[in-house]
Nucleic acid binder design. Structure first.
Lengths: 143, 143
DNA sequence: TTGAAATTGATAAGCCCTCTCAACATGATA
DNA sequence: TATCATGTTGAGAGGGCTTATCAATTTCAA
């Protein structure tokens, strides 16, 4: 609960800073978004159809993109679709993605993160964010 | 030269194994593909228009996807387009991307690759490919 | 050389996402 | 609290990129 409030505040601040408004739809979508690790606009569209049958798909896309700008979500292209990851609820994590069944396993590896910083520094870059995806076959799809 | 022959052999073997045929277009596209680091289907379409004005865009897409299946190329979604990377000509590389000016710096880091394998193994996965992108500010954009 | 089977080119179709715009909601202001 | 300028929404049209369709053509094993 308190976590949701925290995210809601991040959103509120972002909205205030850009002369945007907090709408019923944005609250609804944020609440549902925070309950999950990754979502697709399409997925949320179906999930939320029960709570608000008139919620439009365009609004979901717009709102998820808004979350990205606010630093609450992160867009990731997977296959032909865009996945929106919840990056603020818990620490950053990377993905192991099964090319067979689409299963996504999350992982964190400090050592890799440290090496990334090293590479960035060596090139004079300051990292803001990163994305690491390992594609392969999960145990079940390996035969 | 000998390298191109090597790739051509990889393709030939893949074709033979799947009852596919080596066509003039496939040779043409492979030769052009091997000369570059990353390409877009659209890019190749324009490049090859001079050599073969009737070469269709669909054929290029089909052929690049074929190269992916043969292990010669690797598809990567970048923005709204698909980039096809030449992964066999030289080693795999990752990207440092400047969020300020869009500059892309390539890098390789064996240690990171090794740790990725470790993570995959720990989760029972067999990695086929991966993608690592570090987003941040380049030296010039840091003020 | 022949012919079954794969491939091509042109374009239609499909998918995912964004744009458009009239109707509506929000929230700063009085 | 009422007003109203401005942002937002929903529905569908539009758009960019990629794949499917299919008749004509090419490949290659026999």
């Amino acid at each position: 609960m308190s976590k949701n409030l925290k995210e809601m505040d991040v959103l509120r601040q972002h909205l205030a800073k850009h002369q945007l408004k907090l709408t019923r739809q944005r609250e609804l979508i944020l609440t549902a978004f925070l309950r999950q690790e990754h979502v697709t606009a399409e997925t949320m569209y179906h999930q939320l159809a029960k709570k608000d049958p008139h919620l439009g798909l365009a609004t979901i896309y717009r709102t998820l993109n808004l979350f990205c700008e606010a630093g609450i979500a992160q867009a990731r292209h997977f296959g032909t679709q865009t996945q929106y990851d919840n990056i603020s609820h818990k620490g950053h994590h990377d993905h192991l993605i099964c090319t067979g069944c689409g299963t996504i396993v999350e992982f964190e590896n400090c050592e890799i993160e440290r090496l990334q910083e090293e590479v960035a520094t060596k090139n004079g870059f300051v990292i803001q964010t990163h994305r690491l995806e390992l594609y392969g076959l999960c145990p079940r799809c390996r035969h």
